[in-house]
Design a binder for these strands. Sequence first.
DNA 1: TCCATGCTTAACCGATTGGTTGAATATAGC
DNA 2: GCTATATTCAACCAATCGGTTAAGCATGGA
Lengths: 113, 113
Amino acid sequence: MDAVFHALGDATRRHMLRDLAGGERTVGQLAAPFAISLAAASKHIKALEHAGLIRREVRGRTHVCRLEPGPLAAAHAWLGFYERFWTDRLDALDRILRAEDATRSQDKETTDE
Amino acid sequence: MDAVFHALGDATRRHMLRDLAGGERTVGQLAAPFAISLAAASKHIKALEHAGLIRREVRGRTHVCRLEPGPLAAAHAWLGFYERFWTDRLDALDRILRAEDATRSQDKETTDE
DNA sequence: TCCATGCTTAACCGATTGGTTGAATATAGC
DNA sequence: GCTATATTCAACCAATCGGTTAAGCATGGA
């Protein structure tokens, strides 16, 4: 779990994962969008691999990477434990707003980020 | 997002968050379970605060911390993007079929705290 | 066979991390 | 006012991080 969240804690690696959501990518393809050396990209990919987030298949001289969703599911589940805190809060906010608006016409949904 | 995942990438801080799920905790209370100095715990708490994961209220000489679920919800949503990768049956079948090439069955389950 | 390609490894660098200890700050209670 | 308590701040340390450049390995293709 340490390795998973650590791997996700870098924008470059998160971008690579998003890229891999579109299908298989070689190391070179993953590195292309970034203004970093191939060696640096290789390290990022190794970090993702170490976290179990991707799997690598050596095909000739190219290394093809695939998304490995297991650890993402685990992280999602870990965060899911706290779901009640933001749903509770939204519920509480909802109750407050409804109570305040008891004398008013209503229905303003705020979905903020 | 960088700060959020980075904060989550440390077992001590994750443990502190779990603790805070039980309600308000002072800095001392959060630090207690760990064999680290109060100064080290203070840094961890500052990292959580910097990520927006907790809020601090200074009450007299004690600092009371409270869980702030917003960033957790954001991280959860970010991971949710990949949900189809672990729930989509067709994708799972695809992975199995591709795994035949590697002639390798890989069963890696990570059960973390 | 020779060379370009795809990628990794090694050595290095500056910044950050997680930890320490010791001093400082502020409040609570006698 | 004095002292214990709660916590931060500052300086320091070793380890890790993200990046570089240069070299090394395989592989693919003419």
